[in-house]
C-alpha cells in the first residue's frame, strides 16, 4: 500500500501533457518511477477508476485523471458506485464515502 505515490503519479500525469504522452506509449516505464504495489499499478494502467477510489485516491486527483482517461461524468460516478458494491468502503484518505448514493 503506497497511497502517497499512487496519488503522486496521478497528480503528475494530470498536470503534465508530456508525461501523458510518455504514459500512453509505455505505461510500465512511467509507473516504474514510483513505489507502487501490483494492485495499484494495474488500477492505474487499466484504468480501474473505481478501484483507485477505493484505494483512497483524493477525489480531486481522481476526477482529473478520469477526465484525462476520457470518462464522462456519469461514467465516473458510476465507476465509484460499482466499486463500492464490489470492494466495500474506501480504505483510506479523506474521500471515504457516506452512503455512496449522492443526489443525482
Amino acid at each position: 500500500m503506497s497511497l502517497y505515490y499512487l496519488q503522486k503519479v496521478l497528480y503528475e500525469l494530470n498536470r503534465d501533457p508530456g508525461l501523458q504522452d510518455k504514459f500512453r506509449v509505455d505505461k510500465a516505464a512511467v509507473l516504474a518511477g514510483y513505489k507502487l504495489d501490483e494492485e495499484e499499478i494495474e488500477a492505474v494502467k487499466k484504468p480501474d477508476i473505481g478501484l483507485l477510489y477505493i484505494l483512497g485516491v483524493n477525489g480531486q486527483i481522481l476526477m482529473h485523471y478520469a477526465a484525462m482517461c476520457g470518462y464522462t461524468w456519469p461514467r465516473y460516478i458510476q465507476a465509484m458506485r460499482d466499486a463500492l458494491a464490489e470492494h466495500g468502503n474506501v480504505r483510506a484518505g479523506l474521500y471515504v464515502t457516506t452512503d455512496g448514493k449522492g443526489a443525482i
Binding site: G59, L62, I77, M80, L84, T98, K101, G102, A103
Partner: peptide, 11 residues
C-alpha cells in the same frame, strides 16, 4: 459539498 465522490450532488 462532497465533490468528486459517489456522493457528489449532496448539498
Amino acid at each position: 459539498h462532497w465533490p468528486a465522490t459517489p456522493d457528489s450532488g449532496r448539498i
